[in-house]
Design a protein around this nucleic acid. Structure first.
Lengths: 177, 177
DNA sequence: GTCTATAATTTGATAGAC
DNA sequence: GTCTATCAAATTATAGAC
């Protein structure tokens, strides 16, 4: 598989651009140029932009879920470390927003099929933490953790101060024993 | 002042649309139609879209600051209640994102003059909490609070579940004594 | 699956009359 | 300060050849 197939490379380009500028931050021509094809070829794989963005969010969610692992086998502390690491890499390694965070912020003007997939991403993250925490958990709620991570990405990137991420998340990691 | 001046009404329309769909979620013609003028008139008040968005974020920050009040006169608990109330109304009353949250998420494709104003908004929020907390504060950091609030807006709106906001923020309010 | 070509619309922005 | 008129470019999307 020297070069992955076009469909995947189109999604790579779309993910990169969408995480920088949102749904309207990229066009079919942008992606075509990135991949080295014509925009008609992009439409062949994804008839409408809604199709493309929904497929994009779906792949993004699947990759996150695969990376996070099975929460039934994890301690609460380890699950928190995993999800923090996911968002931390988004900021420190990739220097990109969370795709579903951007789409979520723009949700009222996105095609409904995109919003449906974005919602499933957040439900997946919440369920991941709930499962790892179990019924007796008395630490921070899954919703508070996911919210903090999304917000910390926005804050640290807006201020161009990656250390603000740790300032926002730090005590979460330290108190997750 | 029967009808506020056009400049302000244009910003009203822009704020409403931007908080629903982001920077590229509205056009000069959209705003002109909302206000009842022609798009050339919008360009008279704001030559470029960057000018408009920067003025918009500036006004948004000023309104927030005025509502929050002087942190030097507030207890930590009261300051937290004020900032939570600000974001809570954004969700429950206005059913809109935080303008600077959306712009922050899209920052890498926004004109730099917009990003500068958005950054000042977040710095203002952090300073507000820092001032109210004072040097001996050992509760949640200002960055963690602001992050949670921005993220909780995205989460609750994406899931179309306002109660997730309280789930994300609740223990903050309860532990802020 | 990719291309050329193009349609139909929208966009940010300007010139100049009133 | 608002208008008419317009521009050049970009946008999503489709038809049909190879």
């Amino acid at each position: 598989m020297a070069l992955r197939d076009a469909k995947d490379r189109i999604l790579d380009a779309a993910e990169d651009r969408a995480r920088l500028g949102g749904y309207n931050g990229f066009s079919f021509r942008d992606l075509a140029d990135d991949v080295g094809v014509k925009s008609a070829s992009v439409h062949y794989h994804f008839p409408t932009k809604g199709d493309l963005a929904a497929a994009l969010a779906d792949r993004y969610a699947a990759k996150a879920r695969a990376r996070l692992g099975d929460p039934a086998t994890l301690t609460a502390r380890k699950a928190i470390e995993e999800i923090v690491s996911l968002f931390r890499d988004s900021l420190m390694v990739e220097d990109r927003m969370c795709l579903c965070g951007v789409f979520g912020a723009e949700r009222d003007m996105l095609p409904p099929e995109v919003n449906a997939v974005v919602a499933r991403y957040f439900e997946m993250l919440l369920r991941y933490l709930e499962t790892a925490f179990g019924p007796d958990w008395d630490g921070p709620s899954p919703a508070s953790i996911v919210s903090r991570l999304e917000g910390a990405l926005i804050l640290a990137r807006t201020l161009e101060a990656p250390e603000q991420f740790d300032s926002a998340i730090g005590d979460l990691v330290r108190s997750s024993g």
